[in-house]
Design a protein around this nucleic acid. Structure first.
Length: 360
DNA sequence: AACACGGGGAC
DNA sequence: GTCCCAGTGTT
């Protein structure tokens, strides 16, 4: 009696079909080398790919473009970035969010220079040892720059695979399975394949629309066959966002300079610049002004973070002298070069102080 | 495994 | 308002 054949479960990702689609529809980006140019021998610059990938962590392409432009103009190589003062890097990052990325970016550039002779490691394994480079980013750089045949799994790829397989588990429980499916399908053109999967997720297999009629992976897609692709991936239960409140104090010198200080090394907006303020609490407390002078209320600011929302009452005063504690005066023209997160740009705006965009 | 960690664009 | 984005590090 013959052994029953092992059940054949064909991989739903047809790499050839996907690459053929990518050759015609690849998105153009400043850090990318187009498929035709790669054929001609052009290679991506690991520095630019790394910078873009870090900026793109939990951040949209539209938002990243101008920051990428600004960073590469100011710091064309990893050595330039490594040599830059920390405050300048944080200031250039201001507004992009997730500021641990900027701190790790700077540390990573310095590690590449100090420990790797100024060249990025060429394997995912080596890249992953660097600060700010995790499972996704290490695989992405290795695939895109060096065509290492590794699974590159980001939010786009998770969504695509979840629909291809009608994955019943929430994605966070199914990461290994997704990585396995993608890993089996990676062809020699690993970099183009990785970018093709992400382009597919960004343009055709998008979060709220699935244009299955033009999808190159439609023949193997269980979600398309069942007509319920949009029901995947299954969303985990959502938790609610607590509300916090506090005060912010805008101290203005007669010449218009604003009193600023540096935030703590850890926690929210670590190492970034702020105006003085109270703690952020569950219930509003009385203001604890940083110095004894005539304070007037200058509006309220609402700001939403990932895991809580914040409402700050803004107070404003004129000052002839410095308040106690560490800090510095920043003149109006210099404010745009401070490492001010969006929250504090809102605070200053509420006090009638408009911080000009930091870049052109 | 769960949570901390920003901000903005699309709907 | 909601969703979610080319995720990483910490606990």
């Amino acid at each position: 009696m013959p052994e029953p054949a092992a059940p054949i479960k064909p991989n739903p990702i047809d790499a050839d079909a996907l690459l053929a689609w990518y050759d015609r529809h690849a998105r153009e980006m400043p850090w990318r080398v187009a498929p035709a140019d790669k054929v001609a021998g052009e290679r991506p610059d690991p520095y630019r790919v790394w910078l873009s990938e870090v900026m793109l962590q939990q951040t949209t392409v539209v938002t990243v473009r101008r920051y990428f432009e600004d960073f590469t103009n100011r710091w064309p190589t990893v050595a330039d970035l490594a040599a830059a003062p920390r405050e300048e890097v944080l200031a250039a990052w201001a507004g992009l969010g997730y500021y641990a990325r900027a701190r790790n970016l700077h540390a990573c550039a310095q590690a590449v220079v100090a420990d790797h002779g100024g060249a990025f490691p060429t394997s995912a394994e080596g890249l992953k040892t660097l600060p700010g480079i995790g499972a996704y980013t290490s695989a992405a750089i290795a695939a895109i720059c060096f065509d290492e045949q590794v699974a590159v799994v980001d939010g786009n790829v998770e969504r695509v695979v979840a629909r291809l397989t009608r994955l019943s588990d929430p994605v966070r429980n199914a990461k290994p399975l997704i990585g396995e499916i993608v890993g089996e399908a990676v062809p020699e053109r690993a970099g183009d394949f990785a970018q093709a999967m992400m382009d597919l997720g960004a343009t055709i297999c998008a979060p709220k629309s699935a244009n299955c009629l033009v999808c190159p992976l439609r023949p193997g897609c269980a979600g398309a066959a069942a007509g319920d692709a949009l029901d995947f991936p299954v969303a985990p239960p959502k938790k609610k966002r607590p509300a916090r409140v506090g005060h912010a104090y805008v101290l203005e010198r007669p010449d218009g300079a604003i009193w600023l200080r540096r935030r703590a090394d850890k926690g929210m907006l670590a190492e970034m610049t702020e105006v003085p303020g109270s703690a952020w609490t569950d219930d509003q407390e009385a203001p604890d002004f940083p110095m004894d002078t005539e304070w007037r209320e200058a509006g309220e600011v609402e700001h939403v973070f990932t895991h809580f929302s914040l409402r700050l009452t803004v107070w404003q005063a004129r000052a002839g002298e410095e308040p106690p504690g560490e800090g510095w005066w920043s003149k109006p023209g210099a404010l745009s070069r401070e490492a001010l997160p969006t929250l504090y740009k809102k605070v200053l705006k509420s006090a009638g102080i408009d911080v000009k965009p930091p870049r052109l």
